[in-house]
Amino acid sequence: MHSKRRKVESSSHSDTNRHDEQEALGKWQVTPVLDDDVMSDKVMLLDVYVDKVTDPKHTSRLIRDLNALCPIPSLQHLKRVSKLGMILNLAPEEETPEICLQKLKDWGLDTAGLGCEPRRLQVPAVPPRTRRQYEEAMKLWPCNFHENRYLEKVLSGKLFDDTDRLEQQKYMTKCLEAARYSSESGGAGVGALVVDPAKKQIIAIGYDDRGRYHLKHAVMVAIDLVSHSHGGGAWTEEARSRYSHGSPGSSDPVLKTGPYICTGYDVYVTREPCVMCAMAMVHSRVRRVFYGCPSPHGALGTTIKLNTLKCLNHHYEVFAGILESECKNILTTCPKNSVVNF
């Protein structure tokens, strides 16, 4: 979709800029990097035995008795009864309908009101996580659903409006400057920026300098510059270099004291981060990561999605595609990329 073109009467510099920015917005799309469980519309299935209810007068009693005699904890998200009948029990492959029914009778079920001809049916195996999954699941069997409104907004692409996207574009443009500098000075052509979204304040800009030192990926450099701006840091020479920028801590009256100095901050980076950088951002408690183009070694969507590993103690949100083609262009003109392996 094309952004609405504003008629530029005046040729003043800022108006032209604004016009260009608006036009550029139409050229990229932001894509959330989410757990596969959430992205998929496929419903995982499970076999159960279902029996017709021949006398509706018994329905509520049957539900009560079945829930007491034969609860199915793994199927809490499903209603016990539907137009198709009553779920009796799970249906393991080797178990015949007769065995299923006999077991229930042995456990003391009064089968009055049931057709006593159970048939195998496939029902949704896990609770739906998105509205789309819910709609698919409902085609098979009625189920409960607790909508995550934030997630629905992310999925619908309505999380960010044009103001947000202009801001993302602005930050990524800054990253691109650092990326260009990286490319010219023997790095991998990647730039990164850390911003405090609450104050709209850029905290640090770093560029990839792996030509000089293997670990100086743009993200690692930017994180260290944030530490530097809070009175710490390990790579102090970075703070003096041209395209590295760490805003002095004195501008922030409340210096953060712990090591988790990126708490609440967003990171912008021109290329999908590698697994080292992705984990460095977990350690630093970054809030959100915005990247431009994917990388064959990327750990936020391409090889893995580190942000979706449930066992980690911190999870940031990830969005891809900001000024994607510009970010990619710098990489293709960067000689360093033929030799790097992550």
């Binding site: 690692m220 994180i223 260290d224 944030v226 530490s227 809070h230 009175g231 710490g232 840091g233 390990a234 953060k256 004291t257 712990g258 090591p259 988790y260 100095i261 990126c262 460095a280 350690h283 630093s284 408690r285």
Partner: peptide, 11 residues
Amino acid sequence: NTVNETRNATR
């Protein structure tokens, strides 16, 4: 580890 000393959680 020098995480607290450097205020950098990656150190």
